[in-house]
Computed example of a mutant assay.
Amino acid sequence: MVRLALILGLLSAVGPFAIDMYLPALPAIAADLGTTEAGVQLTLTAYFIAFGVAQLFYGPLADAAGRKLPLLLGLGIFAAGSVGAASAGTIEVLAAWRFVQGLGGAALMVVPRAVIRDRYTGTEATRLMAMIMLVISISPMLAPLAGSGVIALAGWRWIFYALLLAGGLSILLLTFGLPETLARESRQTPRLAPMLAGARRLLTDPMFMGLTFVGGFGMASFFVFIASASFVYTQQFGLTPTGFSIAFAINAIGFFGASQVAAPLGARIGIGRLVRIGVSGFATATVLLAAVTLGGLASLPVVVGGLLVANAFMGLVIPTTMVLALEDHGDIAGLASSLGGTLQMLAGGMMITLTGPFFDGTATPMLLAIAICGLLAAGLCWTVLRPVRDPARA
């Protein structure tokens, strides 16, 4: 399990790395390309939307052609997008190439989930997902620092050449390190009618939809933070790109640290109960942080510490909702993973689009938007997911 987690974690980290390494450069990109904060956030929204929509394609392809081919295809597209983004001369062109990057990076999100479902279910799947989260945690902890170093040495465009190198190394890792996990006799020819039937089954399953959007609003809160944190930390609190990278890493520690205890806690108290505890804690922490901010007490330690706590609760939610959402849909795990991922990424992109016009480089709009995500996740959890089944106890 450890070897599989390491490989899947490194592959899955490429997509987040393309976001996190890029964050310290957002103010510099805005200045270099003559755009606003909202304009440069468009490049993130384009990536998120492509990252979400493309999963609808990779899921069925993974069910039909196996798990390795979609991963190789996605990495090739990601590499092409990286080359284009490095040479972009306007914010619109950069957004377009980031869209291409997202189209490729989507494969690295949806297919590893299906690989997990090929091998494990229930608590074991949660444990493997948590191990993968641990590997992915190198991204928010090291990627912004790496991006700051690249900016200092060569400028923001070289960030995309570094991502091109990461894509090439991932192709080698995939080719020589990951075995095919979907047997030929289990593969399903992609036909429109079965796909529509599977999608209808998922979209009308309140448990699948509820779990997907509980996790989706949790992820949306992190997307809001990603889109605005570099401006908040550098403009309101006066941090350098390196200082921002350190603060960002601290905020991420809570999420990835908590994700490592999700599996043993789920086995002990039940995965469904763990989801409800995590969502309730996340909503409470984000609302309190927003209230403190409105009261004029949003110092840098308060913001960083409050987000550390909130993200820790979210770390209990994301891996468990992913596992539970796929639990009853093993026969269409690829489609379920892709549809769930698409809905979650669209929720995140939509939240950035709706709240972007209110961002002004201060913490207040960012923290209010995050609190809204917490309240939406909590409301959905306590109205839809009360009868959630715990596979560890079933």
Rank of each mutant, 00 (worst) to 15 (best):
R200H: 13
V261G: 05
I246K: 10
S245I: 03
I246V: 15
F225Q: 06
G215M: 11
R268F: 03
P241N: 01
A183I: 00
A229P: 06
R187Y: 03
T181A: 07
Q188T: 13
R200M: 11
G243L: 04
I250E: 01
L174F: 01
G270P: 05
M219V: 14
P264S: 07
Q260M: 10
L196R: 04
G270I: 10
I226F: 12
F237V: 02
I269M: 15
I171P: 01
E185L: 08
R200N: 06
P264D: 02
G266R: 06
R191W: 09
S230F: 03
A262H: 12
F256T: 08
F231N: 00
L239N: 03
A199C: 13
T175Q: 13
P194C: 06
G215F: 11
T240P: 08
R273L: 08
S228K: 08
R268S: 15
G243W: 00
A220Y: 11
G215Y: 09
T175I: 10
V214C: 13
L182A: 06
F248A: 01
A193E: 14
A267Q: 12
R268N: 10
P241G: 07
S259D: 07
T204Q: 09
G270T: 11
A258D: 04
P264E: 01
T175W: 15
A267L: 01
A258L: 09
L196G: 03
A249P: 05
I250C: 10
F255D: 05
Q236Y: 10
S259C: 07
G177C: 05
G254Y: 08
Q235W: 11
M219L: 15
F231Q: 11
G254H: 03
P190V: 15
T189G: 09
Y233A: 14
L192W: 14
L211A: 11
A193H: 08
I250F: 13
I250H: 02
F222P: 09
I250P: 06
A247R: 09
